[in-house]
Simulated scan of single mutants.
Amino acid sequence: MKSKILALTAVTLLLVSCGTKKAPAAPAEPAAPAVTEAAKPTELTPELAEGKNLYENSCARCHKLYEPKKFTQEEWKPILISMQKKAKLDDVKMASITNYIHSQL
């Protein structure tokens, strides 16, 4: 009796596990990606890539990174000045970060 129950349970589990696969729902109409001027990523030169790298590695050590577009160029200026002192960045590195931020606005 026990062997029949175990066999029946095993067969049931096998059928249930094979029968519960769901196919992904296909979208009714494929949406074409809308690419606008604002959505296009800015091509980074080696200098801007270095600024991005410095921004990501120097600033993210202490806090989350903000999107450059979150602030205007005028709002970024005092932020970058105060962060330069805290991050102990020289003027060359800070200029690189500033150029990167301004290129993304």
Rank of each mutant, 00 (worst) to 15 (best):
M1V: 08
K2N: 14
I5Q: 08
I5L: 12
I5V: 14
A7T: 09
T9M: 07
T9L: 10
A10Q: 05
A10P: 07
T12R: 08
L13W: 09
L13S: 14
L14C: 09
L15H: 06
S17K: 09
C18L: 07
C18M: 08
C18W: 14
T20P: 06
K21R: 10
K22T: 13
A23S: 12
P24C: 10
P24T: 08
A25M: 13
A26D: 15
A26Q: 15
P27I: 09
A28G: 14
E29Q: 11
A31F: 11
A31Q: 15
A32H: 13
A32L: 12
P33K: 13
P33S: 13
A34G: 07
A34M: 12
A34W: 06
V35L: 11
V35T: 07
E37L: 11
A38G: 10
A38E: 10
A39R: 12
K40G: 08
P41W: 08
T42D: 10
E43H: 13
E43C: 09
T45W: 08
P46K: 04
E47V: 02
E47L: 02
A49V: 07
A49E: 15
G51Q: 04
K52Y: 06
K52W: 05
N53M: 12
N53S: 13
L54I: 13
Y55M: 08
Y55H: 06
Y55A: 10
E56Q: 13
C59D: 09
A60C: 14
A60S: 15
R61L: 10
C62P: 06
H63D: 06
K64P: 15
K64D: 14
L65W: 07
Y66V: 06
Y66I: 06
Y66D: 15
P68W: 05
P68E: 03
P68D: 05
K69L: 13
K70V: 14
F71W: 11
F71Q: 07
F71K: 08
F71P: 04
T72P: 13
Q73R: 13
Q73L: 14
E74I: 03
E74F: 04
E75Y: 04
E75I: 03
W76A: 06
W76P: 06
W76Q: 08
K77G: 06
P78F: 06
P78T: 02
I79E: 06
L80I: 04
L80Q: 01
S82M: 08
S82V: 02
S82Q: 08
M83I: 03
M83R: 03
M83G: 07
Q84M: 03
Q84S: 01
K85I: 05
K85E: 03
K86S: 04
K86T: 01
A87W: 01
A87H: 04
A87K: 01
A87T: 01
K88S: 03
K88W: 01
L89D: 02
D90C: 01
D91M: 04
D91L: 05
D91N: 12
V92S: 08
K93D: 03
M94T: 01
A95C: 01
A95N: 03
S96Q: 05
I97M: 02
T98Y: 09
T98V: 03
N99L: 02
N99I: 00
N99E: 00
I101R: 00
I101H: 00
H102C: 00
H102N: 04
H102P: 00
H102V: 00
Q104K: 02
L105F: 01
